[in-house]
Each structure stands twice: as structure tokens, then as C-alpha cells.
Design a binder for these strands. Sequence first.
RNA 1: GGAAGGGUGGCAGAGCGGCUGAAUGCACCGGUCUUGAAAACCGGCGAAGGUAAAACUUCCGUGGGUUCAAAUCCCACCCCUUCCGCCA
Length: 441
Amino acid sequence: MMSQSCFWNKMIDRKAFRKDFDVMQAALSRRGADVITADSSWGRARELDEQQRQCKAETEALQSERNRVSKLIGQKKSSGEDASAELARMGEVSRRVKALEVTAKEAEEAFALAMLEIPNVPHESVPEGDHEDCNVEIRRWGEPRRDEVPAHWDIGERLKILDFEAGVKLAGSRFSVLRGMGARMERALMQLMLDLHVDKHGYEEVWVPAIANRKTMTGTGQLPKFAEDLYKLEEEDAFLIPTAEVPVTNLYQDDILNFSQLPIKHCAYTPCFRREAGSAGRDVRGMIRQHQFDKVELVHLVHPDQALDGLTSLLADAEAVLQALELPYRVVDLCAGDLGFSAQKTFDIEVWLPSQQCYREISSCSSFGQFQGRRAGIRYRDADGKVNPVATLNGSGLAIGRTLVAILENGWQQDGSVKLPKLLHQYVGGRESIAPPAIPQ
RNA sequence: GGAAGGGUGGCAGAGCGGCUGAAUGCACCGGUCUUGAAAACCGGCGAAGGUAAAACUUCCGUGGGUUCAAAUCCCACCCCUUCCGCCA
């Protein structure tokens, strides 16, 4: 099922792992002290690397002998000579090779597994810090409203466009149902965002499966470490995707692209599924944190030298959506301790939610450096013929449910209606606002 | 789901159990020729590990087996194609 190619893919360049161990360890430790302890994957990897190499060297020496003598036997036999001495010896060698091969493979797999569980090395520009409070605000856009605004669940329920009880009845907590203009806005936002990225920002739209197999999930870093966050299919070795990043990036898994094809820019709409295993009690009300939500995702494959420039442009593309929707937001540079497993650097975009009088995450734009390229076998051939892992980037552009929430709260009027951003009008049949139902409940 | 056929390098496509990491064609890179381009001709050209560079090892859908030796034989699984059934 999972091919061997998965096992030579590791988080970092293996040579760098051996040569620059201390430097990398120092960089990794910025994520948190527990990342580099002796019994961490990082700590174990060094030892396993050594074991694995010794074991392999031994195996290869024997394999080499086997290959050589086997050829000799072939030659002797075809010219009618006696080869019984070689045959006897090879019988012995062959048994030893077989035994050693098993150990070598085990050693290799243990090492590869450890490597797959080591997070990406933070970029040097990432702010110091072990907590989200250490994130650095980069800029703000728009004027946040400071008046008192009801929570989106109240606004939405009064307008009869959000139905949380129905979601619970059908599927369970953290599911919801959209009705009427609620459902229509969800659909409209999806289309508005895709149009913007395709027509104005130069993305190629793709449509992809919402289910991904184990290898694909491993390529982008969701597995092996975060299985508990995923919905697993019972009958197959496959999972519901937590983000379009997974299928879209893996579109190119095991490929060798030509450098002239880069950068590749894709946008995609997909539903996203997350078990939210670790977030019990957080955002239990409303649509902020759902097990299923819609998202338009942006993905770049770029030359490694272009990773940070690419991130800047991807971030701008995501911000453009908020600006088009007239929603106040700020951009935050995540500190080392708040970085996701695969990320090398991340900017979060946080939209203003008047009911909470604070900014909440609506997009997360990350550079993964060559981390995913290495894992997923996505490489490019440079002008000089050398093959290297590509750098990958992605970001939400945007999470649609949270966008809907932001529109409801930021557009809320004293009379209970919601004023819609101008650009959205044409996507909802020319409507400019959502009014409460005429019949009182 | 049933039946049959098939999975080989970027693509196409050979391959007798040993001399095949793999013919050939296309594509690609370098050169000759040309004012330039095309054509023609000559040369090079898979990936991963390993090395200062070599040597060397591994990889012909995946996993296991037979054998001194497997792309080549056997078994299981996956995928694709065609036909049938079912179905948005």
C-alpha cells in the first residue's frame, strides 16, 4: 500500500541532519524544549541513523558478493565448467543476506518513522516565543466597529439562516445547517473567492477528491503523527481531508517538474473535515469551529529560493479577499512555539469579530520550505540538471464559514438586518442585505 | 460486484531466469552544419542511497515465495483498460 518511496522521504536533508545536527537542534528547540529531548523523535533519530547505516553497509557488502559470484556461476555453467564450490558457498551467503536484509529494513523503517515525526525547522525570521501571545502583529486593515453586536449565532438564528439544532440532530455537535440566504451566501462566497483568485491573481483552479489515502496524508505531514485529528474511513486505508492542501499539493507527489514550470499556483474549493480532538470546550457555540466546513485554498509550488517571496504574494492574495469583502483584519507573524508541524513560517490573518471585540483567525498562510516536497517526493530539475525538492506554500483564501460569521457580525444593523458587502451583491441575486422574516416567531 | 487483458525510464514501447538499469522511438541537453531557425549528423541523458570522486547497493505496480541468480517463474493485494451488472 505505502510504497518504499515514502521511507526515503524525510523531513530534512539527511546530510544536513548529520553535518549540522547542533544548528538544527538549536533551531528546532525554538518550537519548545520537548521537541528535542532524548526520547523525542529527534533524539532517537540520531541513534537510529547510525544503526541503520551500519546495518545497511553490512548488508550491501554481502549483496555485492552475491551479485558477483552469481554472475560467475552463470558464466561457468554456460561454458560447461564445474561451479559446485561456488554454489555451495552462495547457498550460505544467500541465507545470511536474507537474514541481514530483514534487519536492515527494520532499522531503516524505524529511522524513517522517527524522521517523519520531526517537525519542520522554523525559519530564522520566525519570532521567538512559546505561546500565541508572542505572535507579532504585522499590520491592520480597516476600521473595527466598537459598538455592541450580538454573536453570529443569535443574528443567524433570528434571521432563520443558521440552524444549529438541525446540525446536531443530523450529525452531532459541531455540525450546522444553513438555510435560505445562509446557504446561498456560503455558495456565493465560494464562487466569489475562486473568481477573484482565478481572474485577478493568476491561479489555476482545480477540483479534487475530499478523501486521501495514507501516503498522500503523509506527504503533507498530517500523518503519521496526527491521525487522531482525522476522520478515518472504516473500509479503506483512507481519510477525509482536513484541508485542500492535502490533495492539491500531492497532485505532484513523486513527480519531477522542470524548473521552468515553477511557480505553480492552484486554488481549490473543498469541504474540510476535522475531528477537533484536542479542542473540547473551545468555541462550542456557533460556526467558528465545526467538524465540517468549506474552504477555498491557495497552494504554490515554487523554487526553494522563492519560498518567502511566494509567501508574501500568497498572503496578499488572501488579504485581497478580506478587502474585497470590506472586513477589518490584521496580519500576525506566528512565533516559533505556535507554528504548525510542517510549517517553516506562518502568517495568520485574523478578522475582526465585533461580538467578541477581538480578531479571530480566518486564514493561515504558511511556507513549508522543502519539507513537504521532500516527504511527498515533489521535485524539480534545475537548469544544471540537478534534482531537488520543491518548496511548497499554502493558505486559506478563505475559510468560508468564518467569513460568513464575519459578514453577519460586521454587517449587523440595529434593526436586526445584515448589510452585505457590495461585491457580494451580484453573487446573491442582487440582494444588498438580509432582513429578518416578516412573520414574528 | 463478475469475466478477460494489462501495469517496465518524462512519454511511447521491447524484454530468452544469468552478459538487462533495462533495446528502440519521441522528448530533453551539448556539439557540427546554418546569417538565424528547421532538417540531418555526432555525443549525452532515470531515480534513491553511498563516496572527496569512484567503487558499491537498491528500485521494472505493492508485498511475499521459489532459485546460487528474478523485470522475467509462483502466490496475495492494489491499480488501469475492455465487456457485463449496478448506479448519481
